[in-house]
Amino acid sequence: MSEIILPITSTSINQNNKSINLPNKTKSEVKNRKSRSDKLFPRKFPVSDEMRKEIRKWFIVYKKVCRTESITEFNTMLLRFGFRNLDILRNDFKYVDSGIYKTVKPNKLEKSYITDIGGLVDEWGVSERKAIHQIICSVLVYLQNGGGLTYEEIQPIKLHK
């Protein structure tokens, strides 16, 4: 007897005038699945040409320390550093939507520090993009003033069980 190979996209198939019904997941079954704990939430924030150059400069300086190969990953590490050093954060930097964007990819917990009730968006009364912009600017100013990044302080923030 030969095996029947069913198409992925169809919910039923007709073979020799016999209908075979395939299992179909309902929306509620899909909604109840747990999301991955390491799921990332890409967010864009505007940068000026000067800020873009500054990020690039620090990326080159810290590339080996941070063990990163991309500007996006480095930006995310700057964001994490800001979360771990709240005393350096300011929200008074000039914010202009320049049309030039960089990306950060925070995990769920890191995103909640920005957007949840009591997060920086709520505390500062700004948009999510502006909050991210302010955090990155704060860390860049910290670096310009002689501060430094350590590998431990730029690692993903995780829930402790």
Rank of each mutant, 00 (worst) to 15 (best):
I5H: 03
I8R: 08
S10M: 09
T11C: 07
T11G: 07
N14P: 02
N14K: 09
S19G: 01
I20Q: 04
T26A: 13
T26L: 15
K27L: 14
S28W: 06
R33G: 10
S35L: 11
S37K: 14
K39H: 14
K39D: 11
K39E: 12
L40F: 09
F41Q: 08
F41N: 13
F41T: 11
P42R: 13
R43Q: 10
F45P: 10
F45A: 06
P46M: 06
V47Q: 11
E50T: 12
E50M: 06
M51K: 14
E54H: 12
E54S: 15
I55R: 05
R56S: 07
F59I: 01
I60S: 10
K63N: 15
K64S: 11
V65Q: 09
R67M: 12
T68F: 03
E69G: 13
E69S: 14
M77T: 02
L79P: 07
R80S: 02
F81R: 00
G82F: 07
F83E: 03
R84D: 01
R84V: 00
D87E: 13
D87I: 04
L89V: 06
N91H: 14
D92R: 01
F93N: 02
Y95F: 15
D97H: 11
G99P: 01
I100E: 02
Y101P: 09
Y101R: 11
V104D: 04
V104P: 06
N107H: 01
L109N: 11
L109Y: 13
E110N: 04
S112G: 03
Y113S: 00
Y113G: 01
Y113E: 00
T115N: 03
I117E: 04
I117A: 08
G119N: 03
L120P: 03
L120H: 07
D122P: 13
G125H: 08
V126R: 14
S127Y: 05
S127R: 07
E128M: 08
E128R: 07
R129L: 06
R129I: 02
K130S: 01
A131K: 07
A131Y: 11
H133V: 03
I135H: 03
I136K: 12
C137Y: 14
C137Q: 15
S138W: 02
L140C: 06
V141F: 10
V141A: 10
L143E: 00
L143P: 05
Q144F: 05
N145P: 03
L149G: 01
T150W: 04
E152M: 12
E153A: 09
I154T: 08
Q155V: 05
P156T: 07
P156G: 09
I157G: 09
K158F: 07
H160N: 13
